[in-house]
Nucleic acid binder design. Structure first.
Lengths: 116, 116
DNA sequence: CGTGCATTAAACCTATCGGTTAAATAAATT
DNA sequence: AATTTATTTAACCGATAGGTTTAATGCACG
């Protein structure tokens, strides 16, 4: 309990950034797209109906949250998923698992029996 | 895949709200406090150094995200956790578990061997 | 070497966020 | 009935979000 209070400063900043990053549909979609493998900025922007500059900003938010890394490849920036911060978010949620164990189990079963 | 595209309208709104709600330390702390059982607005506000009105607004955000329910008890509003939306957030993260299975397992072990 | 392509930066706009203080509401107490 | 207590609403404020359009940057290629 006290541990968590002490750790809070730095961890909380991360969690703020990660959850904030996850709070926008374009950014979540981007992470989903990156799950298939690395993609360029243009490739990531293509399915969305906003400007390239807007997507570029979203990517910055994801990058600042540590959710994606960018690798310069000639004139193209190739983005790939970094899932460590997702683990942090997952970890936070998991700590509360004890308070909603029944729902958690139901969900786990549900996800288990799904088509991917 | 197409399923997710179709479900997206409503689910995404929920996820936007839930992740947004989780992106603020006071709101996450509030959920932690509620894990011990229902609490009044004043009780929830006490540990934080912002005004009661500010906490009241945070509670509204949590309520709008469906993360807490409020039960009127005389002149006091008693808040209690509703963890279904946390399951949604958990579910979203879990779908990506396959892409970071190693980290996920490491985290699971870590959480497993922890002091609560 | 100049032109095109991928991406970011800058400037700008409107809306939302997160906080404040002060007033309003509503129930409990005396 | 008057007053205290619990909470929300209102009005306000500066900062951030999320989008636009128009440069600017930087690499590639004929």
């Amino acid at each position: 309990m006290l541990n968590r209070m002490v750790e809070r400063q730095s961890d909380d900043l991360d969690l703020d950034a990660v959850f904030h990053a996850l709070a926008h549909p374009i950014r979540r979609a981007t992470l989903e797209e990156l799950a298939d493998g690395p993609k360029s900025v243009s490739e990531l922007a293509e399915p969305h109906e906003v400007s390239l500059a807007a997507v570029s900003k979203h990517l910055r938010v994801l990058e600042d949250a540590g959710l994606l890394d960018v690798e310069q490849d000639g004139r193209v920036r190739r983005c790939h998923l970094d899932s460590a911060p997702l683990s942090d978010a997952f970890g936070w949620l998991t700590r509360y698992r004890v308070f909603w164990e029944d729902r958690f189990d139901a969900l786990a079963d549900h996800l288990e029996n799904e088509d991917r």
